[in-house]
Amino acid sequence: MDSIFSMFLNDYYIQVLTMLGIYLIAALGLNLITGVTGQLSFGHAAFLSIGAYTSAIISLKLQLPFVVALLAAGLMTAIWGILLGYPTLRLTGDYLGIATLGFGEIVRVVFLNMKITGGALGLAGIPRSTSLTMVIILVFITILAMFRLENSRFGRSLIAIREDEIAAEAMGINITKTKITAFALGTFFAGVGGGLYAHLIQYLNPQDFGFVKSFDFLAFIVLGGLGSIPGAILGTTVLTLAPEFLRFVADYRMMIYGLLMVFMMIVRPRGLLGGVKLSRLFAKKKVQTTGTSASGGAN
């Protein structure tokens, strides 16, 4: 299938689309944490980097198959998600966000100082094992997984926690356990995304996973519409491809990109597809008209 792609697209566009797919996987993971469960995370890029380095080191030092490396990346990241989540998820709202931001910066600095990661020089020579076909398949698996998670007993408990933590607990939901599970799942997908990233770019540097990147992911899902799978997909696609479409303005590209974020937010404060749910799209039911009130998301 990759050969079919290369008949129609040049290498550059294949690279861009592969990257988009990777971002989609990671953004959907963040959407589970922040959009569905309402737990603010400002450290998503750090989880990508944990996955990226784990998979790269497994490929380089142990020469294990790519699938193993990817899976290990996801699991290792989920473990770190749990380790961070356990003490911090009792913090609420912005404080959780701040703690995850801090964690992200600490991870970056630690990677800069470690030997096995190549420190500030970075880690080079990672085999290019990620292909567009594989990423497309994984994106679909991720979407299916997210859809199933959301529309289940487990998913309902996540949304309940986002909507009202005290009521959720009073209805018999074990808040701590549920939040940590959501965090572990969300970071698992970030880890897989990181593994794919490492084997696409073939070079890792901790500076590529700073908090600015974490905010990119947050912007993807907020602009798309928090808690909405189609929203996360649209937001990620628009913001990932925007710089490509803005190439004609050359040097002003990122300036316009920044203004675009401000503008889109003001025009649609609930995000492009805020409140749109995949299950409701399929059920062809009338989507409830939603007021202007603040709701959904990490309030």
Binding site: L149, F154, S157, G172, L185
Partner: peptide, 15 residues
């Protein structure tokens, strides 16, 4: 949500 504590499917069940 009220049924939550009387049922048990977890995230693996959901997937």
């Amino acid at each position: 949500i009220g049924r939550h504590c009387r049922t048990k499917a977890g995230f693996l069940g959901a997937l």
